[in-house]
């Protein structure tokens, strides 16, 4: 029997080892992006716009053209790209703080304009790069380096559900929340990324995929415990699913 290659590194994923912490899910998101880019054969026309935070490692890991954006501004930068290069594929790659706090205005208005770009949102409930501070997505009661006594809604407000919120906007073509903490989740996540890119290629409008991810380092948990926490605490507040999938290019 001849051996067949059934699993390989996507060509658009650079030949570099990830420096992400053990148990971090950013690596999987990168891989899924690489797979989608390879599948659609769009490596030559894809431009990535990562935000600030652990996202900046994307500069090195994906073998595509990449442009930096100031913290939170990736959707605006991506808008500039897409308006100049409407036939290219443009995506942003943003974390909780980048997208849900400082960049809330940019993502909401980019979505509302129905910009034909894809926003990849990695929700791990903390500011990973800067040392695990409270994020807009941090769960109530969750201890972080800036919510030592646990997130308290009287002081800190409630965790924001970005996918549900964006799904209400007419400009949004696709909004889904997926998880990466088990194989079934990764499979669905792959489908969601493929769908988002496909819809962008079909000029359907703004597409959004939120990834529930683990940050064991800043959660102060082992990778295994972090996985369990996603089931026990995170998913009950952030239900998975496709919140919006438009069938035609625009509302009208």
């Amino acid at each position: 029997m001849k051996l067949q290659k059934v699993f390989a590194r996507p060509a658009s994923l650079a030949e570099i080892s990830f420096h992400f912490c053990p148990g971090c899910h950013h690596g999987i998101v990168h891989r899924l992006l690489g797979e989608a880019i390879d599948t659609y054969g769009i490596r030559e026309k894809t431009i990535g716009v990562p935000g600030v935070g652990c996202c900046v490692f994307l500069y090195d890991y994906l073998d595509i053209d990449v442009c930096e954006a100031p913290h939170g501004r990736a959707p605006a930068v991506a808008t500039g790209f897409k308006r100049v290069l409407p036939r290219n594929v443009v995506f942003t790659y943003q974390g909780d703080g980048d997208l849900g706090a400082i960049g809330m205005s940019e993502v909401v208005h980019t979505a509302n304009r129905g910009e034909n770009i894809t926003v990849i949102f990695v929700n791990n409930g903390v500011y990973g790069m800067t040392g695990g501070q409270m994020a807009p997505t941090t769960l109530l009661g969750q201890q972080t380096t800036t919510s030592a006594f646990g997130r308290d809604f009287h002081r800190d407000g409630y965790p924001i559900r970005m996918t549900e919120m964006l799904a209400t906007l007419e400009g949004v073509a696709f909004a889904a929340r997926v998880t990466l903490h088990n194989a079934a989740g990764v499979k669905k996540a792959r489908k969601a990324v493929m769908k988002a890119f496909e819809m962008q290629l079909n000029n359907m409008g703004f597409t959004f995929v939120e990834f529930i991810s683990a940050c064991p380092t800043n959660w102060r948990l082992s990778p295994e415990e972090a996985t369990a926490r996603i089931d026990d605490e995170v998913l009950p507040y952030y239900p998975l699913g496709i919140y919006k999938e438009r069938k035609s290019p625009d509302y009208l």
């Binding site: 605006a76 790209f81 308006r83």
Partner: peptide, 23 residues
Amino acid sequence: VFIQAESEIASINMLLGAAAAGA
């Protein structure tokens, strides 16, 4: 292309993106 952005912050970053695309 004329875009009325949601803020000056968005405006300058759209400019950044358009400039990076060579326009």
